[in-house]
Design a binder for these strands. Sequence first.
DNA 1: ATTCTTACA
DNA 2: TGTAAGAA
Length: 122
Amino acid sequence: MRIGELSRRTGIPTRLLRYYEEQGLLTPVRLANGYRDYADRLVDRVEQIRGLLDAGLPTRVIREVLPCTDNPCTITVTDASDELVGLLEAERDKMDARIECLARNRDAIAAYLRQVEAARKR
DNA sequence: ATTCTTACA
DNA sequence: TGTAAGAA
């Protein structure tokens, strides 16, 4: 499929799909006319990338972790560099911190909503 | 009509 | 990330 269809199927603007390619996150083949040709399986890949990006991981880290997700993860475990491990540990900690922050805000909002509900019944 | 590249806000 | 210009 060409970039337009992939964009429709993933909800990601074509601008970003080209950007992901530039960052080495996607590697579509080229048609004779120069148009990018994306394999169907790349739809999942794009969703994968979105998830990681939304989680706050920088593209340089995703670039190294992604190949680990679609291939049999045997060789990847072997060549996990100390640097990558450190990067991922740092990302994990950031995620933990954000989860805690979100949980607090969620609880605060939930409490507020309960108050609103109680007030309406009276 | 679609996509491509490059460049700028 | 969004948008624009010019070419294919």
